[in-house]
Amino acid sequence: MAESDKSSFEQANEAVSYLKSRLPESLQTPQVAIVCGSGLGGLADTIQTESRVEYDYSSIPHFPRPTVAGHAGKLVFGFLGQRIPAVLMVGRAHYYEGHSMDRVTFPIRVFKQLGVGTVVLTNAAGGLNSEYGVGDIVLLNDHIFLAGLAGVHPLRGPNAEEFGVRFPPLSDAYDLDLRRRVYQAWKEVIPSKSTRKLHEGVYAFVGGPTYETRAESRMLRMLGADVVGMSTVPEIVVARHCGLRVLAFSLVTNNAVLAPVPRGDEHELQDKAAGELSAILEEGKAGHEEVLEAGRASALDMQGLVVQTLVNAFGQ
């Protein structure tokens, strides 16, 4: 049977069979799955060294492979804290890489079949809210999925009844108990003198790979979005379809430019050289290396916050 002829349920079970045939018994049913976003692969370093087992995505049946810098492409199994069995997805595949929505979200279905009950998703995002600074952490409590509203949706097509219902609600997508625990963990792991802030807000998914224009950024802000990025929401949709609890974080790695683009007939621009005009347009422009660098600078705080939240929620 060709891969395209197999259901997502069958494919997920084949991936799980491959993994469980190789994993030690103590790690065959992880309690928590963590998806590590751009520049946040260091979360895998929180796994106890003696328990760590990892597999390249290329070795796992049907698993999508990322092609973007900052996404290593491996599953890491092990224990968080004292005895929390976990699986970490170091790097994710994105829709803009050419994967279908079904492929992008396939790992979530694998987690469900492994027995995971809670998924933690992290990402690097652009800040739309003027109160957010680069390096701040945003605890997500809602999202705007314009692509999904237009029909580019991971649940489009015949419903996978083995995973969930045809019309899953999303008004309760972001687990309130876990969000409450994040604030407790923040007080425990982030020094009081730290300038980094914890916010709670709304994430807007965009297809990418281009960063948003100024007009698009203003539109998203007017719609109620606090951060914007190219991942996470499709995974959350499928996680909730599977009945998984969801906790999600964005690391603000750049501030989106909301100011209108300068007009060509502005009087003060007429005598400026071409190089000066380019500098004006480039002010605040986002770049992928900038995203990765901000991720590196803030990774330890993000790691500590995620792990402490999970220890508080599931630790013995």
Rank of each mutant, 00 (worst) to 15 (best):
K6P: 05
F9E: 12
V16T: 06
R22W: 03
E25Q: 13
L27E: 02
L27W: 00
P30A: 02
V32G: 04
G39C: 05
L40A: 00
D45S: 14
I47F: 05
R52S: 12
Y55M: 04
P61K: 03
K74P: 07
R83Q: 15
H99Y: 14
I108S: 01
K112M: 06
Q113M: 11
G115W: 04
G117F: 00
V120K: 05
T122N: 10
N123L: 03
N129Q: 08
G135W: 10
D136I: 01
I137D: 01
L139R: 09
D142Y: 03
H143Q: 08
G148K: 03
G148I: 00
V152S: 13
E162N: 11
D172L: 10
D177I: 09
R179F: 07
I190V: 15
T195K: 15
L198M: 04
H199T: 10
E200C: 12
G201K: 11
G201N: 04
V202M: 07
A204T: 08
M222H: 12
V228A: 09
T232S: 13
V233W: 00
V246D: 01
L247C: 08
L247F: 06
R263K: 15
R263D: 13
E283S: 13
A297Q: 14
D301Y: 06
L305M: 05
T309L: 11
G315H: 11
Q316R: 13
